[in-house]
Design a protein around this nucleic acid. Structure first.
Lengths: 203, 203
DNA sequence: AGAATTATATGCGAATTCGTATAAATGTCG
DNA sequence: CGACATTTATACGAATTCGCATATAATTCT
């Protein structure tokens, strides 16, 4: 038996192509990004794109998932539990804001919140990825908060799920506000207040 | 001198046209809504649309502003100060969620957050409307919270601007999560926790 | 009544857009 | 070296999309 790859070998780098595609989707959104744009950015012809990823929606979803996986990993790393919850949460929000405002031009916010939200209504597959992704971020937060309760940094009766949900809400808002053009210090103020509120013990 | 309107009178109702246009933009977003769609929904021909509103972006912006003005008014009405801050904030979030999930089909969230965010990056005019709108909602919240501090419902040292910002964040998140397909009770839980957190007095 | 003014109706045209069909290229296996 | 498998290159076609150009309708002013 033989097991080597038959046929002409692929010339593109799948990961790199996804990254370039993400860049376009991230700033212009799904609907305003054409296959020609994607073809030019990835250096792949349209038939190659189709062969590698399927149609435009499939490529978009692959880009969303890659973004989410990397982002969830980065968040989990920060929330290692080595430092206080307060410190780690502040860093999560700070680093998220870095990403949301990273572009040299207008801030692009979060790929998922900023661009998948629009498509979610008419594209069930996108909606599902978005929902699952929001849930994934939230789960990481909730687990870390649960540990903080167990460690006594938060009150024993604190509501881990609820506090995680509020923390998620702040991230969603940072993403929206970044894309709306709000300045960095406005976003930082929100983060500061939120961390204070979330980490404050009961009266 | 004469001052009556010359020429053929307009047949369309500007307000109604804007409402119908908003409906399309709200569910499909700006980029995925064509002028033909808008023409069909408003019962106006494309030249009439152009004459009445300008190009597609101008029509979109008019729809955004109309939506914002109505929404800010509704919010201001609820935050009249006749009841406790806690009660009024809970109603704001509850009524907002009603709107975000009103559609018979997939939830559409907030027209501004759900659809203007994507366009904001490449369309400065949209970005400005979005930013101003977020600010307008926030200002109404902040004023009401300031009153609650003066009335003693909140601590005298409470940070009105900060608490308003967090309340805004929760609304942004409700809008995003609605569009992501999250169920009503998940949104309500977030609202409940947030109101508790925001209205809780210091330890 | 007729001229002037403004709105609506119809339709054209240039440009995009997306998927695929066909042909050429580049590798492996016998 | 030749048959086969798979990717890339080129190009086509059908459908949209948007703005405008031209023609028609409805109203007011003289």
């Amino acid at each position: 038996m033989t097991n080597a790859k038959r046929g002409r070998p692929v010339q593109y780098d799948r990961e790199q192509a996804l990254e370039r595609a993400s860049d376009l989707f991230w700033s212009a959104g799904f609907a305003a990004t054409s296959l020609d744009d994607l073809s030019a950015a990835t250096q792949m012809t349209r038939p190659s794109l189709a062969g590698a990823f399927g149609d435009k929606e499939a490529l978009y979803i692959a880009a969303l998932m890659r973004y989410r996986d990397a982002s969830v990993d980065a968040m989990r790393e920060i929330l290692s539990g080595k430092r206080s919850l307060r410190t780690e949460l502040a860093e999560v929000l700070d680093k998220a804001t870095d990403v949301y405002m990273a572009s040299a031009d207008a801030a692009r916010g979060c790929l998922l919140i900023g661009t998948a939200s629009v498509e979610a209504v008419h594209r069930p597959a996108v909606r599902q990825v978005l929902q699952e992704s929001l849930g994934a971020f939230n789960a990481v937060l909730e687990e870390r908060i649960r540990n903080a309760i167990a460690d006594g940094e938060l009150d024993p009766e604190a509501n881990a799920a609820g506090l995680a949900s509020v923390t998620s809400a702040v991230m969603h808002s940072l993403a929206v506000r970044a894309r709306a053009g709000e300045p960095r210090d406005a976003l930082d103020k929100l983060s500061d207040v939120a961390v204070d509120l979330i980490c404050r013990k009961r009266p």
